[in-house]
Design a binder for these strands. Structure first.
Lengths: 358, 358
DNA sequence: AACCCTTATGGAAACGTTTACATTGATTTC
DNA sequence: GAAATCAATGTAAACGTTTCCATAAGGGTT
């Protein structure tokens, strides 16, 4: 069996209590014994058992993150932010992806009890009651991009509505009239808010002049399909606003395939500003979310909640978005009208923030 | 305080043993009491404490992953693979990034003891002795892309040498003679192997005719810098092989900025085949690693190790790589010589595997 | 020299489970 | 009808820590 604190105590000729004190850096232990203990521990390759320790300290130094998925540029960035903030505080990260499977997500959530000090939950798929049924009570939790009327927990959301509104406005100001929108998944709260932003900017009504809404699911394939549909329409839309960048990529592929050029024949915009957006040709106009900041902020918020643990202001915090105008929308950033002058800017935002590995 | 198994026992009017049995689905408990217990548990919102449970069962249903970083396309894909395999087995994932900080990595490693059933370690930065000093003994571990002479643990590596060799050969066969190579970080084992593959293909000698090695660190910025250097050389290299895709991206940016076109004025190749590679213009010729498979395989291997736990074959497994010829290298896939015919293929590998979210 | 105060150390309880073992009561078997 | 078997349940030990409390040993201060 593996070596425990008792073995160290025996080897150093002291009691387990002293070993524990020495190893945790308490001051009430002699220099001499302390050294003897350290030496014994090192020699035996002793490593304390985390489960036993956190059983009694009621601290795990770990936070759990339940995300809908772990894959893709968005989550990579999100995890980066969460990890960065966690590391800064010496916390570990227990990640989990639910992949729309509610039962599995529930099981995961229950398994978290006793293993984490707090929970970060992103569950954009509306599912009333799910959280209140399955969140361990008494466990500090921060909800990210999550719907529902749960008001016991702090909540962070992205300004999807504002971002979509701004982009739509930008396209309108650029002179486009028939602007199509490609939706995200049906019951996704982010997707719904983006659609609402588009609609509000277009003039509230679902059948406002120029309004045209296609379904999608945030996947590139869905964008590609939507692109095909768009190209076959009779009064063809002049611009397409996809609810995320991956779908914009799909639309672009469909356009290229059909020999239509973007933005000349069809303007294009996305949402998220994933790293790829600025490398595409044409570079993609999009709505930037500071995704890593989002994650970082959420973790910071969670830690606050853990530290107070009593009074919960349960406020909602909104992460702002930012319009990023590149070439794909055919409209210069300063909102001038001409549709053909959009090829020269966006060369400067070539920030080297990425570090590929390997 | 939060509700424990005792509370449930009291509420159901039984002993804690019965509650435990009922909740874990043992068969030796009456239907009647079982129901009563379940009901009490549900009503009290009881969730078992993972720390207490794994303290006695010696199982955590969690595996730890220590990676150099969590960010970027490569790790995103790797985690996807690991997560997929873990979920399939009902295992949780405790991730951690070491960011080259040895002390921090050591602390993390020790903190894993008692919290995980096994460990996945990727530590491409050569550091002899580090692992043997800090890996919890008796803890099943699989080493990924990790050097050192540790022969107690199973090991998975990528065929970096073979991949780099194949790409270099491809460039040579395409008619290029002066082929430059942009290195990865100095003490990185993946990077070293890729360099070795390049050298071997070029003719072993560091100063073989046409050989030209520039330093780098896998970052886009390094590629950009290397690109600038390359453009200033007198007998300018005809082709550049970057040790990873991100650096290739940087080289491309430098070329574009200088008005040089790829592949006409300078051929370009990368390594990894990150998702972005096929979206760039020109699309990037690269060496594909099935990264997700790599992760999946590593986890499978770890689970095997955990399950046997006694005899350790401690074998090494090599993940194959695959040459992906697109347009940036200016050489068609079938190795014909002309340098100017490389613009029409690679349109078919447009696989919709990605699902951006949101 | 008796006192108190401080400091180092050990003993043992506690954390919330699971499980080996003991106990009970019912059912079968002769 | 008593003995033997069996299923359901309870009791208590164990897992490896931390920490409260008690104890012992110094070290000043009267």
């Amino acid at each position: 069996m593996s070596v425990t604190i008792k073995d160290v105590a025996k080897a150093a000729g002291v009691s387990v209590a002293s070993v524990s004190r020495a190893l945790n850096g308490h001051d009430n232990v002699t220099r001499d014994t302390c050294e003897r203990i350290m030496q014994a521990a090192q020699q035996l390759h002793y490593m304390p058992n985390g489960a036993a320790r956190s059983l009694i300290t009621r601290r795990t130094q770990t936070i759990g993150a339940l995300l809908p998925d772990l894959h893709g540029a968005f989550f990579s960035e999100l995890i980066r932010g969460i990890d960065r903030a966690a590391r800064a505080r010496g916390l570990h990260l227990l990640v989990s992806s639910s992949h729309d499977n509610a039962d599995e997500a529930a099981a995961t959530l229950r398994a978290m009890r006793g293993r984490v000090d707090g929970l970060l939950v992103m569950s954009p798929h509306a599912s009333p009651g799910f959280l209140s049924d399955n969140l361990p009570p008494e466990l500090p939790t921060v909800l990210m991009s999550t719907g529902g009327d749960d008001d016991h927990h702090a909540r962070l959301t992205v300004d999807n509505h504002g971002g979509a509104w701004a982009m739509t406005r930008h396209l309108i100001d650029g002179g486009y009239q028939r602007i199509a929108f490609v939706c995200g998944p049906e019951h996704n709260i982010d997707a719904a808010e983006r659609l609402r932003g588009y609609r509000d900017a277009m003039g509230k009504l679902a059948d406002a002049p120029g309004c045209c809404v296609l379904s999608g699911d945030f996947s590139e394939q869905a964008g590609y399909d939507a692109g095909h549909q768009l190209l076959g329409m009779d009064p063809r839309p002049q611009a397409v606003f996809a609810a995320n960048d991956m779908m914009a990529l799909g639309v672009l592929a469909a356009c290229n395939e059909a020999g239509m050029s973007v933005p000349e024949d069809m303007a294009l915009a996305g949402f998220d500003d994933i790293p790829m957006a600025r490398y595409m040709t044409p570079s993609l106009s999009t709505v930037r979310i500071h995704i890593a900041d989002f994650g970082e902020r959420a973790l910071a918020r969670l830690v606050e909640t853990i530290d107070q643990a009593d009074d919960k202001p349960t406020t909602e915090e909104v992460i702002p978005t930012e319009l990023v105008v590149r070439t794909s929308c055919g409209v210069p950033a300063n909102n001038v009208l001409p549709l053909d002058a959009g090829a020269a800017h966006a060369a400067a935002d070539h920030a080297f923030e990425d570090r590929g590995q390997p």
